[in-house]
């Protein structure tokens, strides 16, 4: 388990996520992104596999979230669930559950992209903490 908070930004918006494991951290960040867009709607749904690689944890998180955003934008679908199997050795693997949106309106903000601004993924005491900002 873990949690996420919204971070204020004048023009854009960010999240601070935390969890006991890297896998749960990536799940929380995904939930955070989906909540901002207004598309976090737990349900069954079509399972889409995600497999991304990067040189560092921050880059990996950006790539993971960018992949989910691409899937949302091209399929016009909500996020019904997320399960990250493994985040290790520069690779993140897991699955997103998606349900097509009934209309193009959502309850949240359109996110254009995931940025590297003030990006961090670090171990704080016994928790993993991530900060990531989105362009809206």
């Amino acid at each position: 388990m873990g949690s996420f908070d919204i971070l204020e930004h004048t023009a854009d918006i960010g999240i601070r996520a935390e969890a006991a494991t890297l896998e749960a951290l990536f799940e929380q960040a995904t939930r955070g992104l989906a909540s901002i867009i207004g598309i976090w709607r737990p349900a069954a749904g079509e399972v889409v596999r995600i497999d991304v690689t990067a040189d560092d944890l921050g880059g990996l998180l950006v790539d993971w979230l960018s992949e989910t955003l691409y899937l949302h934008d091209t399929r016009l679908a909500t996020f019904a669930g997320v399960a990250v199997d493994a985040v290790r050795d520069g690779r993140a693997v897991g699955e997103l559950r998606m349900v097509p949106l009934e209309c193009s309106e959502t309850e949240g903000i359109q996110v254009k992209a995931i940025t590297y601004h003030n990006l961090s993924v670090e171990r704080v005491d016994d928790r993993w903490v991530a900060t990531v900002y989105f362009d809206v």
Partner: peptide, 9 residues
């Protein structure tokens, strides 16, 4: 000017 990401807006 206002706070952006990387560059200021």
């Amino acid at each position: 000017i206002h706070w952006g990401y990387g560059f200021p807006i």
